[in-house]
């Protein structure tokens, strides 16, 4: 398979152009238009406002997981199919910590540390050996991880529903006649905050600079002394942390079960593709857009019942790939034949 796989890898190996990611004017205008539509709709209908806020909260979760996928994709052009399952496993770790008596937020912080270590370890042990081989080889390894993690969690904790303490309580705020769940606002806040912290890390620290260099120009980066392999491992660690945030923020609405992140992974895929698969900002905006879109179609399109949420996300993904494969914020790839 190696020769074949190398060829397959070659198909997607493209030269990264010097054009930086950034939104084009029409995209920005469209986004502003959507935002205006959402604000106007929310002001005129309380149900619309409620669905929008709930959609934003869910979308922030999709965005975090999408961002985790994008982090890894930018660095190695690989999609981690186990990202959702890893997030699920880390949520169980958090659950176990609270069972052992830690307070929620202490368990939360400790889970993030553990996630980082696990992410780095996975990259070092199973991803690095196949990293240079091909897209298919790495995809199959992540698929193996998917099943392995799923099995480990079900083995250890069983397949039945588990419940954690609600981190934000069950308070509902009323603004006018619109009800906002405190939980939705908290989820939104935590997810966005983690994304912003990550952005700061990448933009303003030396480590972030080294990581961006390792992802964009591995050869040049290693020439100036960046330890590229370690940067990739740290990238996996950070992706795993973001995933853990997504998992822990999913728990209050979905409860714990081994399959809880599988649909979310698909939404995150749709979000990442919508954002251009290469753009961190795009992943987050894509996530919010997918979340709001799913909620509003669920509310206002009679045919789109909850069973069709996944197929709708699939349709979004497919349409973006076919109509505008670079997504909202992706850059055109220059392919050298």
């Amino acid at each position: 398979m190696t020769t074949l796989a190398r060829r397959l890898g070659g198909v997607t190996q493209t030269r990264k152009s010097a054009v930086s990611t950034g939104a084009s004017v029409p995209v920005v205008l469209a986004l502003v238009g959507v935002a205006v539509f959402l604000v106007v709709g929310s002001l005129s209908s309380s149900i619309f406002a409620q669905q929008t806020v709930a959609g934003l909260a869910q979308g922030a979760i999709f965005g975090s997981l999408a961002l985790a996928l994008v982090l890894i994709y930018r660095a190695t052009e690989v999609i981690n199919f186990a990202q959702g399952e890893l997030a699920m496993a880390m949520t169980y770790v958090g659950y176990q910590l609270t069972i052992w008596g830690l307070s929620y937020w202490l368990a939360f912080a400790l889970t993030l540390v553990i996630s980082f270590i696990v992410g780095v370890a996975i990259q070092l042990v199973v991803i690095r050996p196949v990293q240079h081989r091909s897209v298919i080889a790495v995809v199959i390894v992540t698929v193996g991880l998917f099943i392995l993690i799923d099995g480990l969690v079900t083995w250890k904790w069983g397949a039945d529903l588990k419940f954690m303490r609600a981190p934000f309580g069950n308070t509902v705020y009323h603004v006018g006649n619109v009800a906002f769940a405190r939980q939705d606002l908290g989820v939104l806040l935590v997810s966005i905050l983690s994304v912003i912290l990550l952005g700061i890390l990448f933009r303003f620290t030396k480590l972030g600079l080294a990581m961006r260099a390792a992802a964009l120009r591995p050869a040049a980066a290693s020439l100036v002394g960046v330890r590229v392999n370690w940067m990739l491992a740290i990238g996996w660690g950070l992706a795993s942390v973001l995933g853990a945030v997504a998992g822990l923020m999913t728990e209050p609405s979905q409860f714990l079960q081994p399959t809880m992140m599988q649909p979310i992974l698909l939404y995150a895929f749709a979000a990442a593709v919508l954002g251009g698969l290469e753009s961190p900002v795009g992943a987050v905006i894509g996530g919010l857009a997918v979340g709001v879109f799913l909620n509003l179609t669920g509310q206002y399109v009679g045919f789109a019942t909850s069973e069709l949420r996944l197929p709708i996300a699939f349709a979004v993904l497919l349409i973006v790939l076919l109509v505008k494969p670079t997504g909202l914020f992706g850059r055109k790839q220059v392919r050298r034949v």
Binding site: L8, Y73, V78, V273, E307, R309, L321
Partner: peptide, 26 residues
């Protein structure tokens, strides 16, 4: 549609297909 997709993108789209189709019987 797969004609226009390759590598990672095709993997993503077909994965989404696998997750979506079991929803239709529901």
């Amino acid at each position: 549609p797969a004609l226009r997709l390759s590598g990672v993108y095709l993997a993503l789209a077909t994965f989404a297909l696998a997750v979506s189709v079991p929803q239709f019987p529901l």
